[in-house]
Nucleic acid binder design. Structure first.
Length: 244
DNA sequence: AACACTTGCAACCGCACGACA
DNA sequence: GTGTCGTGCGGTTGCAAGTGT
């Protein structure tokens, strides 16, 4: 936040007066005009700070209550699929912000994962990095290079703009990336959700964990689902072909 | 009551990326 | 092709509130 480091700009906790100014300005000019906020309101805050305040705290519809079991379950599954893509995960949790999700993960679920890991290391001598909590301990699904047929506009995203080159679903515009992932999980396609459902069904039929860690996860943490990455990838391929 | 320690979360920081000149 | 600007994201920090001793 380069400009926020300049002297003269206020930092730290927001006052109710500042919140009111911010809200009034956004009511008038709308979201996204962050550069206008300090100019129009006289708020002595940088635009990034204004944006963060609005998105994480003041935006209508934000759910500041405790995470329900359903939300935690979904969060765990989405994190397993997407890794630390907090904004994408938050997009699937109505009323939750990326910051909320990230904080919840770091303070609750991440610690549980770490504790689990330590216990396992002590008991089973399983190697497990502790350099970064949470994320690196998870078997985040990594998608191999994937191509889609050219110029097919599916689910609001031109598929020629989509690739999975770096192991994530990406396309040329961030918002489109979001739309793409969201759409994959929404509506008739519900690609990822079907994947998850199939995994759930398979797990219900007979748990098949691919690693010792996952096998232990299934017994140590009832909230955690186990995933066979290869199977998931095959299912994703199948769904992609159907979309094609 | 007073202090130390822990926890949860709001806010900040640095970086990446797209748009545009 | 390159530099600048605006925006968004993930990681990290700082501090108030809560809890333990």
């Amino acid at each position: 936040m380069e400009e926020c480091s300049f002297k003269g700009l206020k930092r730290g906790a927001w006052t109710p007066e500042e919140d009111n100014l911010l809200k009034e300005c956004i009511d008038i000019y709308g979201e996204g005009k962050w550069h206008l906020i300090p100019l129009r309101t006289g708020l002595n805050r940088c635009r990034k700070s204004c944006r963060l305040r609005w998105l994480n705290y003041m935006k209508p519809g934000i759910n500041r209550g405790k995470f329900s079991l359903d939300e935690v379950d979904l969060l765990l599954r989405l994190h397993k699929l997407l890794g630390n893509r907090w904004s994408l995960i938050a997009g699937r949790l109505p009323g939750r912000t990326a910051n909320d999700v990230k904080n919840y993960w770091n303070t609750n679920l991440g610690k549980k994962q770490e504790t689990c890991c330590k216990i396992k290391r002590q008991n089973k001598e399983i190697t497990c990095s502790t350099s970064t909590p949470a994320a690196k301990k998870l078997n985040v699904i990594s998608l191999p290079p994937q191509s889609f047929s050219n110029n097919n506009d599916v689910l609001g995203v031109r598929l020629s703009e989509v690739s999975t080159r770096d192991g994530s679903i990406t396309c040329n515009k961030d918002d489109r990336k979001c739309v793409f992932v969201n759409n994959l999980m929404d509506g008739e396609s519900m690609c990822w959700e079907r994947v998850l459902e199939k995994c759930k069904e398979a797990d219900a039929a007979g748990p098949k964990a691919t690693t010792v860690e996952e096998a232990e996860n299934s017994s140590m943490n009832s909230m955690s689902l186990t995933f066979d990455v290869d199977r998931l990838w095959n299912l994703f391929n199948k769904d992609s072909e159907e979309l094609d």
